[in-house]
């Protein structure tokens, strides 16, 4: 079984649109949306929900107002400025904890002389399995101000792998998260191939280099493709030269094409529309040589 991860470094390079087209072109794939911050793949693949699971990770501190004696001992101990002073006008008669700032370290529990702080598991989001016309889709949604999407990414990949093994699917296609942080690392470890979708701009170049550094570090075979390459042909060449130097393959170029957005509006994959760039996408898919 092979696993292709589609990454971009910076956002907005067309990674999700491309992934959706690959999902259509591939033979019996399992699809995983690991872009859990801004999961958009479901908007194009028209999924029917099969299962939904809550996702917990870490803990969060909560002051129980009926026990708190308002001594304030906890306040200076918190290094994340998560403990707030009483604000009766806002309904907080005692000290309280801003859940969006709490790191879940547990220092306040240690400091509190009244044992007034509860420490439940933190609900970080949910993950789902759905059916689409292309195959099963594992996707997720991260709660507001939730952390640790790396762990959620791992969960999504594990579920995709389980489905692929059970159903004898030859390929998993993963829409990866942006950036180069923990979620991205969680999305590439152990993958068979990474495709970096970039664009011919100074930001695209900068971020692609950071991503290629990462995939080289993990020793994962990597290809790149430049989307909207004709916006700046000389920058496109510069990027391709840098990618080659970093040991990546060039999987092709995709032209700037406004009908990509039209396909999105019609909730269709680009490959199913009459967009001129569809042939470029097919060529990139063939160049990847995964099936």
């Amino acid at each position: 079984m092979k696993e292709l991860i589609v990454l971009s470094g910076k956002g907005g390079t067309g990674k999700t649109s491309l992934t959706a087209s690959f999902a259509k072109l591939a033979e019996r794939p399992v699809i995983a949306d690991c872009d859990v911050d801004a999961a958009d793949l479901h908007l194009v693949l028209a999924p029917t929900l099969r299962e939904r699971h809550e996702f917990f990770s870490g803990h969060e501190a909560q002051i129980m107002p009926e026990v708190c004696c308002n001594c304030g001992v906890c306040l200076p101990e918190c290094r994340f400025d998560a403990i707030m002073e009483p604000a009766p006008e806002a309904g907080h008669d005692t000290y309280w904890i801003d859940a969006t700032a709490c790191e879940g370290c547990g220092v306040c529990l240690e400091a509190c002389p009244m044992d007034s702080i509860d420490f439940p598991e933190r609900r970080c989001g949910e993950w789902m399995i759905s059916d689409t016309a292309c195959g099963p889709l594992v996707h997720a949604r991260l709660g507001i101000a939730a952390e640790n999407s790396g762990k959620l990414v791992t969960t999504v990949r594990q579920q995709a792998r389980r489905l692929a093994e059970a159903g004898n699917h030859p390929l998993i296609i993963v829409d990866g998260p942006p950036g180069i942080g923990c979620p991205v690392i969680a999305s590439v470890t152990g993958a068979s191939h990474v495709l970096v979708v970039t664009e011919p701009s100074v930001s695209g170049e900068h971020d692609m280099e950071r991503v290629l550094g990462l995939t080289a570090h993990f020793g994962i075979p990597t290809s790149i493709c430049v989307n909207k390459w004709d916006i700046n042909p000389s920058m496109c060449e510069r990027i391709e030269a840098k990618a080659r130097k970093a040991g990546a393959q060039i999987a092709g170029r995709i032209r700037y094409d406004t009908s990509v957005t039209q396909a999105q509006i019609q909730e269709r994959a680009v490959i199913d529309s009459d967009a001129p760039c569809a042939e470029d996408i097919r060529a990139v898919w063939t160049a990847l040589g995964l099936q």
Binding site: G11, D37, A38, T100, A101, L142, I144, A145, A146, E147, S149, P178, G179
Partner: peptide
């Protein structure tokens, strides 16, 4: 701000 609605974005917006 960083994109998204996760921790670093919220840390920026707060």
């Amino acid at each position: 701000a960083p994109p998204g609605t996760a921790c670093p974005a919220v840390a920026t917006l707060r």
